[in-house]
Amino acid sequence: MKIGLALEELHRSEAELAHELLKISERHKVDHEIFHLAKDLARWSQQHVRDIAEIGKDYGQDHLDPEAGTKHGPVDAIVEKGSELIGRMSSPALLLLRDLREVYMKAAGVSVDWELLAQAAQGIKHRDLLALAQKDHPETLRQMRWANGKLKESATQILVS
């Protein structure tokens, strides 16, 4: 059984998604919806990381860090201030599209990982694992749709002006 490995991989990808969301928030502080929403949505991934660390114990993964998604050091605060200054002076717009694309891709990866896990859980009839996938995966899809929606909404103005 390789579910433990799948959980380890999902734990890593959810933590990365949380970081990506925090990063986009910090980098685009003057794009206020990105700044606030990305932080809210990072919390979903942070909770998923905790959920995975907890259930991982049932599959031989005793050392998954439940707080792997929440690291936010002093350097990040400097990035945040810097982005505020840069954002108001020149056009950081292309960077925004790149960062949103990254969130979208990472969320898509996490989504696939949840699907794999849900398939496995059904195969071996592990109700707890399936319930977890059913609880967390829809939020991943919402993160994806958010990034996709923001990309569509922003692309025209950024690319034609």
């Binding site: 749709r145 958010w146 996709n148």
Partner: peptide, 10 residues
């Protein structure tokens, strides 16, 4: 739209 993320429903 999604009530939290604001993403338009397809």
């Amino acid at each position: 739209r999604d009530l939290v993320t604001g993403a338009p429903v397809e």
